[in-house]
Computed example of a mutant assay.
Amino acid sequence: MQLKIAVIIPSYKVREHILAVIESIGPEIKRIYVVEDCCPDQSANHVETHCKDTRVVVIRHAENQGVGGAVMTGYRAAIADGMDIFVKIDGDGQMDTDLILDFIDPIAKGEADYTKGNRFFDLEKIRSMPTMRLFGNAALSLMCKLSSGYWNLFDPTNGFTAIHANVARRLPFEKISHRYFFETDMLFRLNTLRAVVVDVPMDARYGDEVSNLKISKIVGEFLVKHIRNFFKRIFYNYFLRDMSLASIELPLGLLLFSFGLFFGGFHWMESSQAGVSTPAGTVMLAAMPALMGLQLILAFVSYDIAALPRRPIHPHRTPARRVVDN
């Protein structure tokens, strides 16, 4: 079976680069969706005027919806046109389109439902990444591991992604974040579907383009949203959809650890104000539940790390390399 591959390019302030990006996309791609997100540079008109590629479909937003909104529009169009795999790339030229087949392969072979780029595989090449962005991505990656449950992934804000149509159809488009939290919110939604997600190594590329994402300004906002998604994921996976030993370990561990912490803190302050040493029995009464609670929490984390989705939920098994060679 020949898979129909689509590329989705959100277009906002990328007028200077988007034609070169489209030109670099290989013949194995069936359709290219350029979604102009109410761009002040009118990039849609620019593409329609200067691009002669018959694969290109231009879609316009009357109002700016953010990168997530543009991608969701592209997903809907690709689903309506019967595409099988959707690859999302940016229009600023930072993403190497020669890697598109690398993103398609795991999905076409039935090894993954969703693939995303990871710029941290080659430690030598990430030296080209700005220091602030490097540390910001590391912090965001840790938060994403906790909130999404994909402990094996890194570089969560990477926008080079691919997804199978059968998985995209199950996503709640209206609930996914439309702004810069889109990529990480996608991982949370995919985990609730138990979709298999894998990283694809890629190099960091920085030219004269200007990124609209300032990590230093969004870390706080992302932290709040990650905390929200973390609790939602725990509730969905361990109490609503299924129950296991981990469903007992986490609440019991938190209860014991909190009791030991607050009990010990209260009596330490009381003894400090009285100028006397805290009795050994009181110390043990605080330390034992705190240590037991910590062990239970660590046991839950260990279970959660091992509970990664491993069976893809889409049915196709045709290798991408063979498909595009036909």
Results as ranks from 00 to 15, higher is better:
Q2K: 14
I9V: 09
S11R: 01
S11K: 01
K13D: 12
E16V: 00
E16W: 05
I18H: 03
L19S: 03
V21R: 02
E23G: 05
P27K: 14
K30M: 02
P40F: 08
S43N: 12
N45H: 09
N64G: 10
Q65D: 04
A70Y: 02
T73K: 02
A78G: 03
D84V: 05
Q94I: 08
D98E: 12
D102R: 10
A108P: 02
K109W: 00
G117T: 07
R133Q: 14
A138W: 12
A139N: 09
L142S: 09
L146A: 14
S147A: 12
I163M: 13
I163A: 05
H164Y: 09
A165R: 15
N166E: 15
N166I: 00
R170L: 15
R179N: 14
Y180T: 14
F181G: 13
T184K: 11
M186K: 07
M186T: 15
D199R: 07
V210G: 00
S211F: 08
S216Q: 15
V219A: 05
V219M: 11
G220M: 12
F222P: 00
N229C: 12
F235Q: 12
F239E: 02
F239A: 06
L240M: 10
R241K: 15
M243S: 13
A246S: 13
A246N: 06
S247P: 06
L252V: 13
G253V: 07
L254H: 02
L255A: 14
F266I: 14
S272A: 13
A274I: 02
A280F: 11
G281A: 07
V283L: 13
M284W: 13
L285Y: 06
A287V: 11
Q295H: 09
Q295I: 12
I297P: 05
I297T: 04
I305W: 11
R311T: 15
P312W: 03
P312G: 08
P319C: 05
N326C: 07
